[in-house]
Amino acid sequence: MPWFGQLKGVVFSVKIGYKSLCEDPQARESDSESAEVHRSMWKDVWRLNVLVKIKHFLWKSCTNLLPTKENLLKKTIISENVCHLCSEHLEDVIHAMWGCTKVRQVWQRSFGWLDHNLIAEGSFPNLVRLVQTKPSVFPLFAVMAWAVWHHCLRQRLPLARSVVGAIKWRPPSENVVKINFDGALFRELDCAGLGVVICNSEGLVLVALSEKIMKPQTAELVEILAARRAVLFSIETGFHNSVFEGDSTSSCSFSNVGRQDNAVAHALAQRARLSVPLKDWTLACRYAEDTEDVIDVSGLMTYLLVCSSSSKST
């Protein structure tokens, strides 16, 4: 609607333009029917007797907010938008959930009364409106659509999951020790903990450290202090031919691994909450005296878990 400055001396604003549109009889007449249909659709969606996450999923589907390949390509996250299931069509919302030849059989039994090919050329909101004409099957449709979409994601992401989980703790090469370190912040106690564990090429624990310190200002500083303590600990214990490994991506340039692959150092840092006195360098030695076993990473982890649970129970 063009602005011709009907009101002299009034500067155009979004508010004035909105009011002008609302007062325009022609605009109200053209929009009233579609707006009513839209409101009716959303009322039925939010009244569904399904999990809230499925209602949110329908909302995202109808507003094209799902991470389909079409949307990911628009954001330059991926380089192609072809459906990875059928390799025949671009993956938008209606194709991923309904039009793909690999998912048609899922819908055939309960929704065979819908014209599959015609709907595949339309939009997902139009499909929702058609299903809403039979309220008894609308909850089933919502759950099935959610399951189909997550199946699509699982088929698309196995490679990404394997890459993320590919880094695992590995023993160092011969004549080298690996030093894992981590830090933990205990805000409620106004202190922090540092954990360091040194292992040889066979994965056996040589010595470990759990130390409580005064609380630094940030979590990043805790990780930096843990890295510094690991270097000092290697000098104090005489292990000079060392590689260092931690799970912080922002504190330093040592080798980075996931939290699960730095579990022993993390558990030592957490155990510092219970350390009295502040330093506990004899942890590994006490474990050996108690069990008379060779100390390895898994054994030390078990010991730490037992110590933690017994301390909580007392």
Rank of each mutant, 00 (worst) to 15 (best):
R187N: 07
D44A: 12
H56I: 07
V37G: 03
I224M: 10
W149S: 02
L48C: 08
N200D: 15
A184E: 01
Y18N: 07
L85H: 00
V163A: 09
N180R: 10
K43Q: 14
R39F: 02
V143I: 11
G9L: 08
V45S: 06
R273M: 03
E245R: 08
L157P: 00
E23A: 12
V264A: 02
K212Q: 09
W107P: 14
S250N: 09
W98A: 08
N175P: 02
A265P: 01
S136D: 13
Q105P: 04
V128E: 03
K168M: 05
V143E: 14
N241V: 10
L278I: 03
W113Y: 15
G193S: 01
E91I: 01
H38A: 13
S275M: 11
E36M: 08
F12D: 15
K168E: 02
V148A: 06
W3I: 00
R228F: 08
W3N: 15
W169N: 01
S210M: 01
V222L: 00
C191K: 11
K74Q: 06
V264S: 00
D182N: 05
E188M: 00
R170S: 13
R273H: 03
V93F: 00
S110Q: 13
K215Q: 07
A166F: 02
L278F: 09
V243G: 04
C83W: 04
G299I: 11
W42R: 02
V163E: 11
T68E: 04
L7A: 07
V50Y: 04
F239C: 13
V10R: 13
S13T: 15
P67Y: 10
I235P: 05
V128W: 05
V294K: 10
F186L: 10
E88S: 15
P216D: 05
L305Q: 12
V82H: 08
A288Q: 11
P172H: 12
F239S: 14
R47G: 11
V197S: 01
C62K: 04
D296R: 09
L130E: 15
C22T: 07
P67R: 08
R39P: 05
S313K: 14
G183D: 04
F254W: 15
C285Y: 11
C152S: 13
V137M: 02
T237P: 01
P172E: 15
L140A: 03
V14Y: 07
L300S: 12
A147E: 11
T314D: 03
A96Y: 09
S173Y: 07
D290L: 13
V148L: 07
S110A: 13
L51M: 08
F124T: 00
L185H: 11
H89G: 06
V82R: 05
G238N: 03
F12R: 12
A226Q: 05
S30C: 10
Q26D: 09
N81M: 08
G246F: 03
D182R: 02
W113V: 07
T291R: 11
P277C: 04
H150G: 08
G122P: 03
L157I: 05
T282F: 08
W98E: 13
Q105R: 15
E80T: 13
D115F: 09
I213C: 06
E23R: 12
V143W: 05
E23D: 13
F244K: 02
F111K: 11
N71Q: 12
V163C: 05
D44W: 02
T63G: 06
V10M: 12
C199Q: 14
L189K: 01
K279A: 09
C100S: 10
P125V: 03
L90R: 14
E70Q: 14
A272S: 13
A267H: 04
V177C: 05
G299R: 07
L72A: 09
A265K: 03
